[in-house]
Design a protein around this nucleic acid. Structure first.
Lengths: 242, 242
DNA sequence: CAACTGCTTTGATATATATCAAAAAGAGTA
DNA sequence: TACTCTTTTTGATATATATCAAAGCAGTTG
């Protein structure tokens, strides 16, 4: 059964946003929070398969996902594409564009989304006034580096089923962190997109799902996933052999 | 023939460092440069296979590589390890530790190295006083994110020889950026380490080297590499088939 | 110099995943 | 409902890379 991300009427202020814990405003004073409110003036809606930004776009803002979820992907000259991540509510995207002032990847909405635009020059200035915010930005960027290196480990040294196990456990944790079920959720992405993310073909992803189901570890109804045995998934990751 | 990274007598000041262009002090005024000098008090020497930091170490400082080169790697519970990068003079490492205040990966010297320690709390404070420095730090972190995503593309969708071509071209460019030959250099890492980085076994790496040599694209004498035909390497990357 | 050690190359074979193909299942629409 | 279109599943086969094994080299140490 689908468990939609909870959607609240889009207020424009960080100070009244229910995602505070996940997003920007960690440990800010009331005064600092009010300053932050001035920042995020624009809140925009996106429908499935809309682009938030494209590769090559001029960089102006980071984006905080208020609701819904995106995928980010990079395109190779020859047409190949690689999904680099699936982002959900409370996560900040666009960090890769800071280095060159040009977006290196593209972000596509996987469902209806609401996004807060955070003009980077304002964010920079504000982060000099609010040390906590500066530190938080450094941490967000560092977290993205750690995440990417985790995927390098996955892509470089795990077998197909381990990769899928890691993927499902990661989703499970992130849903749980948002107050949703850790064991029942609806995938927002296709087998092909999962495959691209995990460095596998869609058929291999499908077979890995089927295999987990045969072993009674999960129940798969196309995009509806129920994890029956979290521990087995974890074991699959650690033991290299189930 | 080996082309050693040029080593100057280690002065402690950023303002007199020949790596300025590559490292921290971009576009700083004389006064700002002097401030930066106060930062980097410690300069430390490392021998081959010394650890700069280990996974789990408390985070205190970023490190600027003054000379020599390091590899960074992450360890999986079951003993598998993944090399996440090879870093050379002018590059900053330790960024992944900012997110949790614990080093997520470990850095190992691949030869004799000199490293500048940059205490992060001082760097943070300084970056509030010097907007250019703050922006530069954001850019360095963003660049690392872009680099990591490039490796995700490589690991997720390239075949063995394309990966090696991408690796060699990357080294070539980075040596060139340091005023060294773009076509002749000495590898600092083993086939096993290259394999770990590229998600391949050492035998596969060795065979790919041999194949490039048979095709007259490079000359390999164990760790001494000469690139005969840069364009062919580039083509190997773009065409997906040589 | 010889013996040792670790790294690299090369060959033979095994295996995980990709590829090709077709059927089944859903989702949307007339 | 019937129809189209896309996604998913499953099977048969091909292929790239891993694995296993041995030999060659280079550097180190006694």
């Amino acid at each position: 059964m689908p468990l939609p991300v909870s959607i609240h009427p889009p207020k424009s202020a960080c100070s009244s946003c229910n995602l505070a814990e996940l997003c920007l405003p960690i440990d800010l004073s009331a005064r600092e929070l009010r300053k932050l409110d001035e920042l995020s003036t624009l809140k925009r809606n996106f429908s499935r398969s809309d682009y938030l930004y494209r590769s090559g776009d001029k960089f102006r803002s980071l984006f905080a996902i208020h609701s819904g979820s995106f995928k980010t992907q990079i395109l190779h000259e020859d047409g190949r594409e690689q999904v680099t991540g699936f982002q959900m509510a409370g996560e900040i995207i666009g960090l890769d564009a800071i280095s060159t002032d040009i977006h290196a990847c593209e972000a596509v909405a996987m469902e209806s989304c609401v996004v807060c635009e955070l003009p980077f020059n304002k964010l920079e200035a504000l982060s000099r006034e609010i040390p906590t915010l500066q530190r938080h930005l450094y941490k967000i960027m560092s977290r993205e580096i750690v995440r990417d290196q985790g995927i390098m480990l996955l892509l470089g040294s795990m077998r197909a089923e381990e990769r899928l196990a890691a993927f499902l456990l990661n989703l499970s944790q992130r849903y749980a962190a948002r107050g949703l079920s850790a064991t029942q959720f609806q995938l927002r992405m296709s087998r092909q997109e999962i495959g691209s993310y995990l460095g596998l073909k869609l058929e291999t992803v499908s077979r890995a799902f089927s295999h987990f189901q045969e072993d009674g570890i999960i129940i798969v109804k196309v995009r509806a996933i129920e994890i029956i045995n979290l521990a087995s998934l974890q074991a699959c990751l650690n033991n290299s052999r189930l």
